[in-house]
């Protein structure tokens, strides 16, 4: 006994967009930045079972079965997320030997359809700076 679905679809889509720039506005200073955006979705379509709920009696005990929850898998399997990332970097040559680098990174993940791993929302940033000395 069971259910049958002659044709179902599993569809995945992803859009990725980025824009970046690098510039040398004044001598000794290099600037660069990148912004990226990704939107991903995945869905099951047309998942349906042709069978109706039924009853099965075994050893005098009656069990009722339904496809209700299995049909729900169409919804459980939905995926949708949006991801942003922005990185800005600056390099300044203080002297021929000494340079300063500053970097800022921001990243955000928006989980818009909770999947089997729970809600994976998150955002992070980091501000980094270091000096480089060349001998």
């Amino acid at each position: 006994m069971g259910g049958q679905n002659d044709k179902y679809e599993y569809e995945t889509e992803a859009h990725t967009f980025y824009v970046g720039a690098n510039a040398n506005p004044i001598p000794k200073l290099d600037l660069s930045g990148v912004l990226s955006f990704t939107k991903g979705t995945a869905n099951i379509h047309d998942l349906d079972f042709s069978g109706d709920p039924f009853t099965l009696a075994v050893n005098g005990r009656t069990d009722d079965y339904s496809f209700t929850y299995i049909n729900g898998s169409e919804e459980y399997s939905d995926l949708e997320y949006v991801m942003w990332e922005l990185e800005l970097t600056g390099n300044y040559s203080i002297t021929e030997q000494l340079g300063l680098t500053v970097n800022w990174l921001y990243s955000e993940y928006q989980d818009q359809e909770e999947y089997v791993y729970g809600e994976l929302d998150g955002k992070t940033w980091s501000l980094s700076s270091f000096v480089t000395y060349r001998f």
């Binding site: 989980d111 809600e119 998150g122 501000l127 270091f130 000395y133």
Partner: peptide
């Protein structure tokens, strides 16, 4: 005959996530 470069610095960070997250 040598080319030498040394970098020293630090980073400040922040992470805000729910169930482990994919962001990092």
């Amino acid at each position: 005959p040598y080319d030498i470069e040394i970098s020293v610095g630090g980073s400040m960070n922040d992470l805000d996530e729910t169930d482990g997250g994919r962001v990092a």
